[in-house]
Lab assay of single mutants.
Amino acid sequence: MPVRRGHVAPQNTFLDTIIRKFEGQSRKFIIANARVENCAVIYCNDGFCELCGYSRAEVMQRPCTCDFLHGPRTQRRAAAQIAQALLGAEERKVEIAFYRKDGSCFLCLVDVVPVKNEDGAVIMFILNFEVVMEKDMVGSPAHDTNHRGPPTSWLAPGRAKTFRLKLPALLALTARESSVRSGGAGGAGAPGAVVVDVDLTPAAPSSESLALDEVTAMDNHVAGLGPAEERRALVGPGSPPRSAPGQLPSPRAHSLNPDASGSSCSLARTRSRESCASVRRASSADDIEAMRAGVLPPPPRHASTGAMHPLRSGLLNSTSDSDLVRYRTISKIPQITLNFVDLKGDPFLASPTSDREIIAPKIKERTHNVTEKVTQVLSLGADVLPEYKLQAPRIHRWTILHYSPFKAVWDWLILLLVIYTAVFTPYSAAFLLKETEEGPPATECGYACQPLAVVDLIVDIMFIVDILINFRTTYVNANEEVVSHPGRIAVHYFKGWFLIDMVAAIPFDLLI
């Protein structure tokens, strides 16, 4: 008679799926529990143990900040960024110097990925580790590398530091407007667009060049630039800015003055950032001319202004700041037409079709709590990747769950009947059967004279019903998954307890 339990259901295979997918890609990662103190490590794979030199037993239950890997060259700011990422709910990448158990130093890129439950609360953290440099290539500990984003994938490793954006290309926007319009339909740009040429040739750093990471940081200074100062900065030398009595002219307006920039070969870094931020506020060169004239017309309804409409929906549905990093990277690809469009465009503009998908598509409701890094690593669709929660398995109709209350009560009843059979069957065979043979035949009273025979008949009927119930009862397979398919249940029961239950259900007393 089957006594099969499996009270692990309803099970959740999400954690096993993450481990299996990460292991298949030869990654070095740990999984931490966000619900406990210090976000203790609950799993670390073999790749991480080989990377740091510690065994799994030495890593388990330690804080996922990996303070046991810190050393003299470990930056405090990087460690603080990892700790801050564990307090938030967004994906974050941090470069930090770690030390192995043998004392060797290596520069590592740590990717902190939160995993949320159905309520939107962070319950786990996945920390992925990628070695960037070994100890002989690690720089000085005073050099802070965590304020910069990861290198873009479309640049060669040897040319990542030679990417320079020439400031004269930004200063000569109005001069290039006529050349853009003359391109017409034969050019790649839309009317009114501004073409910015980027020099990728390796050259020595000069005062006129600005690194790509500095251009990325310009967006942080746009908020500090007032509207009046932006307007004066875009007017140009024809209309000098008016300053109040006793007030000095704005240095932001002076930063885009061609006369002032041409007199000296070098520009201050602050002026460069502010000038680029001011130019980015204009949607095209037409807006710059309109600002000089004193009238700013409404933005025209053409394809170039609607190019950012799908980007707005993608940004609203993005799951991490990696989408913004990807957008900034692609927006700086050289030799393309940049349409400086305000994100607050007309909502009635139709979304044009684009061959290049900048932001990841909208994630469906079932995966809105899973970050983009987890979705990318697992390579699963929205119909396959579940949320991290207890999910009731989908069972067929008329199927009994093996952990249901009805099955528990039924098993206790069958257990009592088995005990009765084990006690009274030998007793009936030894004593009652002998008395029946010696006594007179009682054929007239039937079952009324033999109450134990009636009980034995009921017990046999219950055993037959138990066999039928076992054909529709779920079970737990070797992978700790609840199986509810009727065919698989029948095959599993035939290979197991079916023969024993059938022999126990045969009414031998009635056959004798």
Rank of each mutant, 00 (worst) to 15 (best):
302 H>E: 08
156 A>D: 07
138 V>E: 15
325 V>A: 14
109 L>P: 01
218 M>V: 07
61 Q>V: 03
65 T>K: 03
7 H>E: 14
90 E>L: 13
263 S>A: 12
200 L>S: 14
271 R>F: 15
164 R>A: 14
35 R>A: 06
347 P>R: 11
272 S>M: 09
306 G>D: 10
274 E>Y: 03
187 G>V: 08
307 A>N: 07
66 C>R: 01
146 N>W: 15
85 A>Q: 01
251 P>G: 11
302 H>W: 15
294 G>S: 14
46 D>E: 13
353 T>G: 12
262 G>I: 06
80 A>C: 15
153 S>Y: 04
145 T>G: 08
10 P>Y: 08
355 D>F: 07
124 M>T: 09
310 P>D: 15
22 F>G: 07
119 D>Y: 06
142 A>Q: 15
30 I>P: 01
36 V>M: 15
28 K>P: 13
211 A>C: 07
186 G>L: 07
340 F>G: 14
137 M>E: 13
377 V>T: 03
241 P>V: 14
371 T>A: 14
12 N>P: 12
12 N>V: 12
34 A>E: 01
92 R>E: 15
165 L>Q: 13
318 S>R: 12
7 H>V: 07
337 T>A: 15
329 T>Y: 08
21 K>Y: 11
97 A>M: 09
174 T>I: 12
230 E>G: 06
59 V>A: 01
88 G>L: 14
139 G>F: 12
355 D>N: 12
97 A>F: 15
327 Y>N: 12
29 F>I: 01
15 L>G: 01
343 L>Y: 07
221 H>I: 12
63 P>S: 15
177 E>H: 13
181 R>G: 06
338 L>I: 04
114 P>H: 06
92 R>P: 01
380 L>M: 07
81 Q>T: 13
363 I>Y: 15
380 L>Q: 04
254 H>Y: 13
118 E>M: 11
109 L>W: 15
80 A>P: 01
243 S>R: 14
70 H>Q: 07
225 L>T: 06
60 M>K: 01
95 E>P: 06
97 A>E: 14
290 A>D: 15
242 R>E: 07
187 G>D: 15
311 L>K: 12
338 L>A: 11
78 A>C: 12
335 Q>C: 04
239 S>P: 07
10 P>L: 07
114 P>M: 01
46 D>N: 15
112 V>N: 01
211 A>N: 15
139 G>E: 13
132 V>C: 15
112 V>W: 01
25 Q>E: 14
240 P>C: 07
330 I>S: 07
16 D>V: 09
325 V>E: 10
107 L>S: 15
71 G>I: 01
206 S>I: 12
364 K>D: 08
259 D>Q: 03
356 R>S: 11
366 R>A: 09
17 T>G: 13
167 L>G: 09
314 G>P: 07
200 L>D: 11
274 E>H: 05
224 G>D: 05
168 P>K: 03
237 P>G: 13
61 Q>I: 01
141 P>N: 14
128 N>G: 15
227 P>F: 14
367 T>H: 11
280 R>T: 13
361 P>S: 14
142 A>H: 05
54 Y>I: 01
113 V>K: 09
288 I>M: 10
106 F>M: 08
188 A>D: 06
150 P>T: 13
285 A>F: 14
196 V>N: 11
237 P>Y: 11
141 P>Q: 15
168 P>C: 04
139 G>P: 09
177 E>F: 05
237 P>S: 15
221 H>T: 10
55 S>I: 01
14 F>H: 15
317 N>W: 09
227 P>R: 05
63 P>R: 08
83 A>H: 04
126 I>E: 01
323 D>G: 12
255 S>P: 10
238 G>Q: 07
381 G>L: 04
134 E>Q: 07
303 A>N: 10
148 R>W: 07
280 R>I: 10
74 T>Q: 01
230 E>A: 09
101 K>Q: 01
13 T>M: 14
113 V>E: 10
237 P>W: 04
314 G>Y: 08
280 R>C: 08
65 T>N: 07
181 R>N: 06
116 K>W: 13
327 Y>W: 09
241 P>G: 12
183 G>D: 11
49 C>Q: 08
300 P>E: 13
